[in-house]
Amino acid sequence: MHDTCNVVVLLSGTGGNLQAMIDSFQSAASPARIRAVISNRADAYGLERARNAGIDTRVLDHTAYEGREAFDAALIDQIDAFKPELVVLAGFMRILSANFVRHYQGRLLNIHPSLLPLYKGLHTHQRVLEAGDAEHGCSVHFVTEELDGGPLVVQAIVCVQSSDSPGTLAQRVHALEHRIYPLAVRWFAEGRLSLGEQGALLDGQLLGPNGHLIPAI
């Protein structure tokens, strides 16, 4: 039996993925425990979700710092005060400095609303529809210095319907995010998931270029 894995979540918005984790890890036997939620926005609704669950919260306003490096250094101090084994980006709308990413090498996860490496960056649902793609989805990956890069851990696929709008597509992708992000965190907390030199490892086996793939339902 592993010790409980302490997790710090960074977010900037509503905290839908945070809520999915809170719901997933609320039992006393859970391998993961969310120690703190940190946001760069005081009005982020995710902070409210954390408070409602009895989780420590911190706000670090990026506009109060002279540039990205200074903000990231202060953020590292805040995170490390909670001694986390894992740091989870859940809609944290900041591009992180190389120093920050290196500091948490192998213990920093992100989720992105596309089937990476497709559609890095913003407006993924709109871009999928404009391209006429048959499939869309979401990806959990280890964070590296490449934006929305890093070895893939798990992807889930959704079929694009002819009637879809960016809004309906986003809704279905969010539902998948809320399934696969807690799953990836649980794997890490159980000691099953790690970052090796060649990529992400699950149960000691190198995951393929798409990570663990959950096909369209």
Rank of each mutant, 00 (worst) to 15 (best):
C159W: 04
L152Y: 07
D133H: 12
Q205P: 03
E190P: 04
E130R: 10
N6V: 08
L206S: 14
P209H: 09
G150D: 04
L147M: 06
A74E: 13
G132T: 10
A28Q: 13
S24C: 11
I111P: 00
L129V: 05
N110R: 02
A36P: 02
A42P: 04
R107D: 14
F100N: 03
S30L: 10
S114P: 03
I76H: 02
V185P: 00
D203G: 15
E145M: 06
Y119C: 07
Q126M: 09
I76S: 09
A184H: 05
T168V: 07
T144N: 15
N210E: 11
P209E: 15
M93R: 04
T4S: 14
G199Q: 09
P31F: 13
S30H: 12
N99Q: 11
D43P: 03
R94F: 07
G106C: 04
A44I: 05
L207R: 11
Y104M: 04
V173S: 03
H212Q: 08
A42M: 01
G208W: 10
H2S: 13
V101D: 04
I38H: 01
Y181F: 13
G149W: 05
D3G: 15
Q19M: 09
I157Q: 06
P166S: 08
F82T: 09
A28P: 15
F71E: 05
L11F: 08
P31S: 11
R41F: 04
P113E: 13
F82D: 14
I34F: 02
Q26Y: 09
A70F: 06
Q26S: 14
A20I: 07
L147T: 15
E145K: 07
F92Y: 15
H212G: 05
V9L: 02
R35I: 05
P182A: 11
E145G: 15
M21P: 01
C159H: 08
S27Q: 14
P182L: 03
V101R: 05
G46A: 01
A74S: 10
H174M: 10
H212E: 12
I55E: 00
G67R: 10
K83I: 11
